[in-house]
Structure formats: structure tokens, C-alpha cells
């Protein structure tokens, strides 16, 4: 199979890679670019652990082909903190014990950040529905919802 060259922007950095036509963005990120923060929990868009931003919208990177990102802007969990300064969501997730095993955490943080960009003051119900595609098996979601709300309040006050 002939590989296809792709030029894209990942976390603000110009990036070039070669991939097969049928390779998902998730596989490209993990296997070719060493960005393993996005996880494969299902590979079929049912768990959200592979969530990334594609041109400003949160998507499952397992449901995007690598070749589709030609000329696109991709943001992953690796680009969320600013150097050593964590994004408020990241910091509050630690403070509020909103993670246990942590495998769903990168996807949930990406999805939560996209929610707060669109709706800085969501209700609990809105947070729950926005995150319905991000499965977490450890926490029962309770502390996740509370952490998102606490971070949202901080971000509104900032």
C-alpha cells in the first residue's frame, strides 16, 4: 500500500507525516507521532477516549482518517496545558479527584473544554449530555460533573 504524505497542524506545530489511506487519525497520532494521550477504548466512536479537536470541534479521532487532516488544525490533550501551567480543567480534575484510573480523562478534558468554549455556564444536565459520549467506568461521573462546573466557574471569574 502506498503511503500518503499529509501536512497538518497539531497543537500549533506544523506536522508532516506519511500514512496509509485507511489509517485513522487516532492510529496516526499514537503510532506515527508518539502522541499517546488519546486512547483507543473502542475504535467505533462509542467511548470518546480518543477525543481530539479537529478544526475547532471535538471529534472521535478513531472516526477520522489521517489523510483527512491535510491542512487541518488538530488539538490533542498534549497541547492543553501551557508549559508547566495546567489548564483550569486539568488542575481542578486533580483537586476534585475527578479521575480514578485516568484512561478516559484526556478525552473528557478535551470534550469539557469544547463545551465551556461554546457554553461557559452550562447546567449540570447540559454537562451530562455533552459528555454522554465519553464513557467513564470508575467514577460514576459525579466528581467529573462537579469538577467541570468548578472549573467553569473559575474560568468565568477569570
Amino acid at each position: 500500500m502506498k503511503m500518503i504524505p499529509v501536512e497538518t497542524t497539531i497543537n500549533g506545530d506544523q506536522t508532516e507525516f506519511l500514512c496509509n489511506a485507511d489509517e485513522s487519525l487516532l492510529d496516526v497520532l499514537r503510532d506515527r507521532l508518539g502522541l499517546t494521550g488519546a486512547k483507543e477504548g473502542c475504535g467505533t466512536g462509542d467511548c470518546g477516549a480518543c477525543s481530539v479537536m479537529l478544526n475547532g470541534r471535538v471529534v472521535c479521532s478513531c472516526l477520522v482518517l489521517g489523510v483527512e487532516t491535510q491542512g487541518a488544525e488538530v488539538e490533542t490533550i498534549e497541547g492543553m496545558a501551557d508549559g508547566e501551567t495546567l489548564h483550569p480543567l486539568q488542575r481542578v480534575f486533580i483537586e476534585e479527584a475527578a479521575l480514578q484510573c485516568g484512561i478516559c480523562t484526556p478525552g473528557i478534558l478535551i470534550a469539557a473544554k469544547s463545551l465551556l468554549a461554546k457554553n461557559p455556564d452550562p447546567t449540570d444536565t447540559e454537562v451530562r449530555y455533552w459528555l454522554a459520549g465519553n464513557l467513564c467506568r470508575c467514577t460514576g461521573y459525579d466528581k467529573i460533573i462537579k469538577a467541570v462546573q468548578k472549573a467553569a466557574a473559575e474560568m468565568r471569574a477569570a
Binding site: G48, V58, V59, C60, W130, L131, G133
Partner: peptide
């Protein structure tokens, strides 16, 4: 149709 993520595609 699907999740927030799927909605976006």
C-alpha cells in the same frame, strides 16, 4: 445521532 463528537462529523 451519536455523541457530541459524532454530531460534529
Amino acid at each position: 445521532i451519536g455523541s457530541t463528537q459524532v454530531q460534529n462529523r
